[in-house]
Design a protein around this nucleic acid. Structure first.
Lengths: 155, 155
DNA sequence: ATAATTATTGCAAATGATTTGCAATAAGGG
DNA sequence: CCCTTATTGCAAATCATTTGCAATAATTAT
């Protein structure tokens, strides 16, 4: 049994909730998927195993996970207003979004802490969390765009 | 005539567009407003001067400004999926969002450049833009929450 | 095990934010 | 001042997500 499923089971038990087959399926997909699916994408994947699964169930499960802090929700500026769900556990991590192919690369930095401190000190606010989004061309798209524009390979 | 209005007029001229009273009104509000209004909020403000102004016009104007890079669009994670429009010109700036009162404070940092470089070097991607969002309690709400929980004033 | 209790599901209809088609209106050039 | 056509207002459409409700299925007590 994977991390998310057992975490969730525990919480469900403690609050009189029930571990259903739908939840187990969604959780195991979320846990193993190295991506940030939308609710719809998650549904499509899950339906390969449970064709009757409903989109409302997907949303309800994701919202519950969100409330339990087991997934976080992001609205990358993709022109779309669709939410993406990130099952990565508490560790703070950030996202690079390729403006060409929309792929997301996660990254880490310890500089955010400095930024938090900087802002706290200058403003008097208290900062809990923060996130960074970078936009640009991923290595592949960058390569392609250089080849296209110059006919040359990247070194 | 303010900055945004003249910038926009120029662009309109060069592309055969027309400067209408509706656009002029919206632009002047956006230019002077030190906030990040939603389309609806902007409409409400604008209707004080032009009660017949329509929400579609507001959206169409904002989308055009967005395409011209004269405003940027943000989806702060407020539980709401409503867009907020930021007329601040190109200079990169970031946002702190108070999780209690939802107020937004803008801030600046030169550390983002380091983060960009860090990521570019380690990934091979090329980064154009980036934005940071911090969440926490603004000075006022922080003060109130401390008073409420301890009965004590903040030093 | 079995039945009773009630959390959860699937479906359909509702909601909230934004977009679009279209006929009427109004900028701006001639 | 007229003409062309970009832009507007309105209503209806769309997209993403949420909600009400009767049917179903996990758990709990029997």
């Amino acid at each position: 049994m994977n991390e998310l499923v057992s975490q969730a089971s525990e919480r469900l038990r403690s609050q009189g909730g029930r571990m259903t087959s739908q939840r187990r399926l969604l959780l195991s997909i979320l846990d193993s998927l190295g991506e940030h699916p939308t609710a719809e994408e998650l549904l499509l994947i899950a339906r390969k195993q449970d064709p009757d699964l409903n989109l409302s169930t997907v949303y309800r499960t994701l919202r519950w996970l969100e409330a339990e802090n087991l997934v976080s929700t992001r609205l990358f500026a993709e022109g779309r207003r669709q939410e993406r769900f990130d099952a990565a556990l508490p560790s703070e991590h950030h996202h690079f979004i390729c403006t060409r192919c929309k792929n997301v690369i996660e990254f880490d930095t310890d500089l955010l802490d400095e930024i938090k401190t900087q802002f706290q000190d200058s403003s008097g606010a208290s900062v809990d969390t923060g996130s960074i989004e970078l936009y640009g061309l991923c290595p592949d798209c960058r390569q392609r765009s250089i080849v296209q524009e110059t006919g040359m390979e990247v070194g």
